[in-house]
Amino acid sequence: MIVFDLHCEHGHRFEGWFRSSYDFEDQVARGLMMCPECGTQVVSKAPMAPAVPAKGNSLPERASQPQMQPQPVPAASKTGEQSVSNAPPPAEVQKALEALAQAQAKALEKSTYVGKDFAKQSREMHYGERDEAVIHGQASLEEAKELAEEGVPVAPLPFPVAPPEELN
């Protein structure tokens, strides 16, 4: 997974998690990206420094790392450019994200990945055309809106999920 700092044409900043840089570009090209604050679909990657993780399966202890204080983000300049920060999130935010990621992973343990067949299978379960089961997969924004309008109980996952065939 890769995390990009994103910004919209109105200067709103937010993060996006993607399988690859190509996945981000593909979502932009298909009109699937939008600013969570204002809804515009004019979204691009903000400049950011690369993060090179330490080798191994464990994270270094936070206490041993110098704590960086978040700096205020200046308002957009007259040219429309905006300063960006690559400071790590506050410890409370990082802890909440880790807990959310663990909760999603636990929920997906008992869920079956159905890929692009998600909307069809969700609809069939809702209308009693097939047995109910816990599933997850892919749906376009339009498909998700249609499911919601029909009353089909669906929810987006907080973090992207790689299809099983793409996992090593």
Rank of each mutant, 00 (worst) to 15 (best):
Q82P: 12
E146F: 04
P89F: 14
V93Y: 03
S44C: 05
V152E: 00
S85Q: 13
Q41T: 04
V28W: 01
K120S: 14
K145P: 03
A144M: 01
P74I: 14
P66V: 13
G16N: 01
R62V: 09
A139K: 00
S140W: 00
V52G: 14
K116M: 11
F118L: 01
K95R: 13
P158C: 04
K106W: 11
A87N: 13
P88E: 12
A75R: 01
A139N: 00
A54L: 15
A91S: 11
V93E: 06
L6M: 03
Q121V: 09
A76K: 12
E166A: 06
F14A: 01
P163S: 14
Y113V: 13
F118Q: 00
A54D: 15
A99I: 10
E61A: 13
F18Q: 02
C35R: 02
H10L: 08
P74Y: 11
P74W: 14
F14S: 01
A99C: 00
S122Q: 10
P89L: 14
Q71P: 05
A119V: 03
S44M: 04
M1L: 07
A96P: 10
A119M: 06
P156W: 10
A101P: 02
E149K: 05
L59Y: 14
R123Q: 10
H126K: 09
E129K: 11
V152K: 03
V152Y: 02
L100I: 08
L141S: 02
Q65M: 13
Y22N: 03
T40C: 05
E124P: 09
L100N: 04
E98A: 08
E109R: 08
S83Q: 14
P53K: 08
Q65N: 14
A51G: 12
V28E: 02
S44F: 06
L32C: 07
P60E: 12
A107H: 02
P160Y: 00
S122D: 08
E9R: 04
E92Y: 15
N86T: 14
V114D: 01
G56W: 08
A103L: 12
P89Y: 15
E165H: 09
L157F: 01
G11D: 09
N168R: 08
Q104S: 05
M34W: 09
S122N: 07
K145Y: 04
M68V: 08
D5V: 04
N86L: 12
A87T: 08
A139Y: 00
D117E: 09
L157Y: 02
G137K: 00
M48D: 15
A144G: 01
A54R: 12
A76C: 07
F24T: 03
Y127V: 11
L147Q: 10
G11R: 00
E61P: 13
V134E: 15
T79M: 13
S21R: 04
D26K: 03
A119W: 06
A105G: 05
A51K: 09
V134D: 15
Y127W: 11
Q94R: 04
G80C: 05
V3P: 05
P89H: 15
P163N: 13
E146G: 15
M34N: 11
K55G: 15
V3I: 11
E142T: 10
A46Q: 08
A107E: 07
A46G: 12
A54V: 13
G115F: 07
K78P: 11
E132P: 15
I2Y: 06
K106R: 11
G115A: 13
P160W: 02
D117R: 04
K55D: 15
Q27P: 00
